[in-house]
Amino acid sequence: MRVLYSLAIVLALMLLAYTGVEVLPGGRTLFGVVLPWLAFVTFLFFFVAKIVDWAKSPVPFRIPTTCGQENSLPWIKQNKLDCPSTTAGVWGRMFLEIFLFRSLFRNTRAEIHEGPKLVYGSSKYLWLFGLMFHYSFLVIVLRHMRLFTNPVPFFVHALEFGDGFLQVGAPPIYITDLVFLGAVTFLFLRRVVLPAIRYISLPADYFPLFLIFGIGLTGVAMRYFFRVDVISIKTLTHGLVTFQFSAPLESISSLFFVHLFLVTTLMAYFPFSKLMHLGGVFLSPTRNMANNSRMVRHINPWNDPSIKPHSYAAYEDDFREFMVEAGLPVEKELEPKADENAPAASE
């Protein structure tokens, strides 16, 4: 149900864009110019707002998860990347985490072997497909910069060239297109097939997958199957960023608007969803802090100095007789006998 519900919504969105463009007067302007802009502004504003909101909360304690040997004695080899004690080490750890998904690479799966023997085997599929998905997504986004820039920057050309180096088909097939769709499919199937993952998945997990798959599919359809008027599209997209709305909207295929509307939805949905892990991963205190809490004092801005320990004086008042009897040193000798009303020590 959670799957179908999400799928239904994405299909409805596509239908909405299609009919909107085909039937609604001014629909092309609405879906081609107005909504994308609104979505982009929403995306920017709320993305920044979320980051600011996160940053507003302090990090009261230094709580890195240490995944290797600490920095202690000079002759014990520290694991400087998984248990960094310096800023440089933290940069290294964050680089591995953000660009190579270090923690997912560590993934294991409990497996049973003949014997019977319980083995915790390495399980790198999630890491591999996650990496493929994110990187092909990145390359595709960068490739799309061609539509928003004039002249097109050199790196976009380079990416396009590298991406299409297979030189198969006309136009040449981009490897990232295949990888992207394949990886999204894998991530989706994983959610449906693995019982544990299906059980924890929410509609909010399927929806972005369908949305992104829809974007990929419509994009691929435009490039390889139903040729669209790229010149007009570029006029529109470039116009979007240069505020020149003179594109011949009527000559652009409805398929493009469906594609664009899904992207619009993604942008608007992004800051309110789990997709914000894009920002969160940079701020995660268990990863982006050095394990140097015994070396450098970490300051907690709301540390409450009024919380004091039960004082030694009060402790000694409670137990003085026993302490003296047991030969333990005391600060204050026993009062002369019969003095029942010893002043209460303050906490």
Partner: peptide, 9 residues
């Protein structure tokens, strides 16, 4: 609270 993608790792 915000970041989990329920990847199941």
């Amino acid at each position: 609270m915000d970041c989990c993608v329920r990847c199941g790792a």
